Simulated assay, not measured.
Amino acid sequence: MTFDRVYQRIIKFMKIKPSGNYRLMVGTDSQVHATSTVFITGIVIQQKGKGAWACIRKAIVPRKMLHLHERISLETSLTEEVVSMFTEEKKSKMIDIVLPYLYQGATFSIEGHIDIGSGPRNKTREFVKEMVARLEMMGVEPKIKPDAFVASSYANRYTKKAGKFSPT
């Protein structure tokens, strides 16, 4: 599916109930397989308490990426790439859907989900400040574990399956 089709599906989803509370969330996870590393980016539009529409984008690096910082950095880059496709014009059109309903409680936010955590036992804790700052510079609200469910749950589910397919 092209990005334009993804965007049109998101717009269609939001127009069903323009007075809703919407969160556009983008997050990437990776999985090292025998001969490649699979990256899955999840794109999710959620109407809080009422459901969601989601899709994935797959990227395969044809080698085992064993350095954690390199993988986390590429995950963040892939998330940034998708977020950047939501241009100011596209974001304005999304905001325009909920704008007439602001006084009825309608909301819209954009989040970048990073598959890292700050806990003392988390190997990725040393990368939190760097990756969070990267998303903040894009004007996106960064989320880390346990709040980064698009990366740590949704995308993660597909990284496991994706290794069974040939890298195309």
Rank of each mutant, 00 (worst) to 15 (best):
residue 16 I to L: 15
residue 16 I to D: 14
residue 18 P to V: 05
residue 19 S to A: 13
residue 19 S to K: 15
residue 19 S to N: 13
residue 19 S to R: 15
residue 20 G to H: 13
residue 20 G to F: 05
residue 21 N to C: 07
residue 21 N to P: 07
residue 22 Y to C: 01
residue 22 Y to F: 07
residue 22 Y to R: 00
residue 23 R to A: 04
residue 23 R to D: 04
residue 25 M to G: 09
residue 26 V to E: 13
residue 26 V to P: 12
residue 26 V to Q: 01
residue 26 V to R: 01
residue 27 G to D: 02
residue 28 T to Q: 11
residue 29 D to H: 03
residue 29 D to N: 12
residue 30 S to I: 02
residue 30 S to V: 01
residue 30 S to N: 08
residue 30 S to D: 10
residue 31 Q to M: 11
residue 32 V to D: 03
residue 33 H to P: 09
residue 33 H to Y: 07
residue 34 A to S: 05
residue 35 T to Y: 11
residue 35 T to R: 09
residue 37 T to C: 05
residue 38 V to C: 08
residue 38 V to G: 01
residue 38 V to F: 08
residue 38 V to Y: 08
residue 39 F to G: 06
residue 39 F to K: 10
residue 40 I to K: 13
residue 40 I to G: 06
residue 41 T to V: 14
residue 41 T to L: 06
residue 41 T to E: 15
residue 41 T to C: 14
residue 42 G to Y: 04
residue 42 G to E: 01
residue 42 G to Q: 09
residue 42 G to C: 04
residue 44 V to D: 03
residue 45 I to P: 04
residue 45 I to M: 09
residue 45 I to A: 00
residue 47 Q to C: 15
residue 48 K to H: 09
residue 49 G to V: 12
residue 50 K to Y: 14
residue 50 K to A: 10
residue 51 G to P: 01
residue 51 G to C: 15
residue 52 A to V: 15
residue 52 A to N: 06
residue 54 A to K: 10
residue 54 A to G: 08
residue 55 C to I: 11
residue 55 C to Q: 12
residue 56 I to C: 11
residue 56 I to K: 12
residue 56 I to Y: 09
residue 56 I to V: 15
residue 56 I to T: 14
residue 58 K to T: 05
residue 58 K to R: 10
residue 58 K to M: 09
residue 59 A to P: 07
residue 60 I to R: 12
residue 60 I to V: 05
residue 60 I to N: 12
residue 62 P to G: 05
residue 62 P to V: 08
residue 62 P to K: 08
residue 63 R to V: 12
residue 63 R to E: 13
residue 64 K to S: 03
residue 64 K to F: 07
residue 65 M to E: 14
residue 66 L to A: 00
residue 66 L to W: 12
residue 66 L to M: 02
residue 66 L to K: 07
residue 67 H to Q: 13
residue 67 H to G: 07
residue 67 H to C: 12
residue 68 L to F: 07
residue 71 R to C: 14
residue 71 R to H: 11
residue 71 R to T: 15
residue 72 I to G: 00
residue 74 L to D: 09
residue 74 L to V: 06
residue 76 T to R: 03
residue 78 L to D: 14
residue 78 L to W: 03
residue 78 L to Q: 10
residue 79 T to V: 08
residue 80 E to L: 05
residue 81 E to H: 04
residue 81 E to I: 09
residue 82 V to I: 14
residue 83 V to T: 13
residue 85 M to Q: 15
residue 85 M to S: 15
residue 86 F to R: 01
residue 86 F to M: 04
residue 86 F to S: 02
residue 86 F to L: 05
residue 87 T to Y: 00
residue 88 E to L: 08
residue 89 E to F: 01
residue 90 K to R: 13
residue 90 K to F: 02
residue 91 K to C: 10
residue 92 S to K: 14
residue 93 K to V: 08
residue 93 K to Q: 09
residue 93 K to T: 10
residue 94 M to E: 07
residue 95 I to E: 13
residue 95 I to Q: 11
residue 96 D to A: 06
residue 96 D to W: 01
residue 97 I to F: 06
residue 97 I to R: 07
residue 98 V to W: 00
residue 98 V to R: 00
residue 98 V to Y: 00
residue 99 L to R: 01
residue 99 L to T: 03
residue 99 L to A: 04
residue 100 P to G: 10
residue 100 P to C: 08
residue 101 Y to A: 03
residue 102 L to P: 00
residue 102 L to Q: 08
residue 102 L to K: 02
residue 106 A to S: 01
